[in-house]
Write a protein that binds this DNA or RNA. Structure first.
Lengths: 244, 244
DNA sequence: CGCACAATTGACAGGTGTCAAACATAGTGG
DNA sequence: CCACTATGTTTGACACCTGTCAATTGTGCG
């Protein structure tokens, strides 16, 4: 019964009002006028998620774009040995999925929900239409994609065969930016990621993550609890991320 | 005297005719009508490069976009210990640099020429103007950026603490796509990169690159010479890149 | 011809993955 | 409400890969 109520709650959170508010708040739709937002809203629908739900799989045709209203998801791939490689974490406001317009013929990774939540679903044709009719929207998409590109390039540098401390610190600071407000990174990270997920994001193993966190905690750099991490000394973590 | 002549040759190659042809051939400007291309051409200028030339440095304000007409460049950063981390190689048709429109306030890396060559230079305002007036151009930019993003994400996976063989194979196959024709990857890579550069692109050391190449050569996977590498068994390299 | 630089090869130590086992916790069902 | 179980976390031991350092060889360029 308890789960039923919570599911219903989640469904209720996907009401039209929340959808419009979500659209307006998402950086992808920033600057669009109300009429345009209404048109978009009319042409998208909502979708509820539960932990473990697969939104789409790698290789499936990319014909939908998703905007996270509530909840968290991870984008991942499987390597040859079946292990997960987590590319990114999606939080409210993030968008995922793909469209031919973006050069995606097929999804490049799996998308899996980490929590209960709600997604807005946009068909590729709708996305294309907006890109063509709304220059502001096209610019938003271009800017956001460029930012993600730079983020990925920075990650490449950090992951390139450096000490685990460097890799983990980089991942944590990335997440802090993602989870924080627009102006300041978050100090306390509420994330649905397990240490195994953090390991998959940092290119290492759960054991190394555990050991590194333990060492950091002893040094007072972080505090940990169930489902959260607090960055107590961001400067020190930034130094580690830079390889010092 | 010989260098003087070659420099003059390079300068000659930056003539208006070549510039227009280059614009038309670059995927960034694909689909633009002749009038638009003329307008772009009128508002950009050419620039010659010599090996080692620094086009821009990390941290400088991003106010120009560059399109490679001839020659090769590398995009790199320096880590804490001063070592180079090479992000990418740019060949004719590639574009580099940045603009506020793309979310760049400052360049995220250094750009250094590897060879004699010629670049077309586009001021940020010009770029912005085209984005706003030419939907096709905006879509091109969006598609190309998305492709680079996916490329970077794949690289993240490959570099995430995997055997050097995997990392090197991934780098080589990336370069093969970059250097090859539109439909087929190149079999023989003519590149101005030293083994140190390849190491910096793969997140490893020149010594490991040398050892790995030697082993591959013994197994008949590649053949090498001065300034070129031939991929003799792409399937085997692809397997290595996948971690098998 | 000799110099500077790139590439090669070897020896060695250190970091990290792997495997294994003990432990904690939350969600489950009785 | 409590035991039970699955899952995530922690800790330890060990081997292996790879970076580092060093010396040698090879190559293009002046």
């Amino acid at each position: 019964m308890a789960t039923l109520v919570s599911t219903a709650d989640q469904a209720a959170m996907c009401g039209v009002d929340v959808r419009l508010a979500m659209l307006a708040r998402s950086p992808l739709f920033a600057g669009l006028d109300d009429a345009a937002l209404e048109r978009v809203n009319d042409r998208c629908h909502a979708m509820a998620t539960a932990p473990g739900d697969v939104v789409y799989r790698k290789g499936e045709p990319a014909e939908r774009l998703y905007v996270v209203a509530t909840g968290q998801l991870k984008l991942l791939e499987h390597d040859a040995s079946g292990g997960e490689v987590v590319h990114d974490l999606c939080v409210p406001g993030s968008f995922l999925g793909g469209a031919p317009t973006l050069g995606d013929v097929a999804h490049a990774h799996d998308a899996r929900a980490l929590t209960h939540g709600c997604l807005l679903v946009l068909a590729a044709e709708v996305f294309e239409g907006i890109v063509r009719s709304e220059p502001t929207f096209a610019l938003n998409a271009l800017t956001l994609t460029s930012q993600r590109l730079r983020d990925a390039e920075r990650t490449v540098q950090a992951l390139s065969r450096r000490p685990v401390e460097t890799q983990l610190a980089t991942t944590l600071l990335r997440l802090a930016v993602r989870l924080g407000s627009t102006d300041a990174p978050a100090r306390r990270l509420e994330l649905a990621l397990s240490q195994a997920d953090l390991a998959a994001m940092s290119g290492t193993t759960p054991e190394s993550v555990s050991r590194t966190f333990a060492a950091w905690q002893r040094r007072g750099l972080v505090a940990r609890g169930r489902g959260w991490i607090e960055l107590k000394d961001r400067a020190a973590l930034a130094d580690l991320a830079e390889g010092r």
